[in-house]
């Protein structure tokens, strides 16, 4: 029984080989789905509101709902000042959300299941937020690591913990997204690979079981896809709040 390798779906396949010097920058399946996501988002947001009507149609409604959802997310979690970074947070939220969703289409590619991609996004958030904090508060930004109303002796213990938890942010942020996407997609493939062998062994009936499990898992993965994009965006907002207001 030849079961499909569950890791096969994550393989990067070159479509148009490209090289800059010695570095391979080929256009790959990952690049393709990134661009597809970008164009889907642009189509949704730009085309649907090109001729905006007072009573929105379906697509315009969706664009406006996304806009207001992210705007509310920022004002509630990062405060009014956070709205300055609205285009960035909106872009990253939609990019991850659409990337996760189109990754669920069979035989497509999920670029958010690659640690290098999620880490690059998390690193941009981390560096950007830190830069905003330092630009806004200067040296005073370091008080972010000193919790209020704690005995002096405890600070010796707490400050290193705070520093550690601050610098671990890009890793937790990126690993959470990457691990969720990878694990979900692997489980889907593993259960799918049982369908045919079990169907042959159990006269067709037994093959239904992993199929039904996969249907349930797929619905769960739809939820996870949206949830992980939301979590990434909300954490970005919370980090931004720390940089803007220092607790």
């Amino acid at each position: 029984m030849a079961t499909e390798n569950p890791l096969h779906q994550f393989e990067i396949a070159r479509i148009v080989p490209l090289k800059i010097g010695n570095v391979d920058v080929s256009f790959t399946n990952s690049s393709l789905f990134m661009l597809i996501s970008v164009f889907l988002i642009i189509a949704l947001v730009v085309l649907s509101t090109r001729k905006a009507s007072l009573v929105p149609g379906r697509w315009q409604s969706m664009a406006e709902l996304s806009y207001e959802f992210v705007a509310k997310l920022i004002t509630e979690n990062a405060g009014q000042d956070g709205l300055k970074y609205f285009p960035f947070i909106f872009s990253i939220f939609m990019f991850i959300l659409v990337g996760n969703f189109i990754g669920l289409v069979p035989y497509s590619f999920t670029f958010t299941s690659h640690i290098v991609v999620t880490f690059a996004m998390a690193a941009v958030v981390f560096v950007g937020v830190t830069a905003i904090g330092i630009a806004r508060h200067g040296f005073h930004f370091l008080t972010l690591f000193v919790p209020h109303g704690v005995p002096k002796a405890l600070l010796l213990l707490l400050v290193p913990i705070e520093v550690l938890s601050y610098f671990i942010r890009p890793f937790t942020l990126s690993i959470r997204l990457f691990a969720n996407m990878m694990a979900g997609h692997m489980i889907l493939v593993i259960f799918a690979s049982f369908v045919v062998p079990l169907g042959i062994a159990g006269a067709g009936i037994a093959g239904l079981l992993p199929l039904l499990v996969d249907v349930g898992l797929f619905l769960l993965e739809v939820l996870v896809a949206a949830l992980q994009a939301y979590v990434f965006a909300i954490l970005t907002c919370l980090y931004l709040r720390d940089a803007l207001y220092l607790h």
Partner: peptide, 9 residues
């Protein structure tokens, strides 16, 4: 594969 992914990202 990292450089290609990062560049296209």
């Amino acid at each position: 594969t990292f450089p290609a992914q990062l560049v296209w990202l």
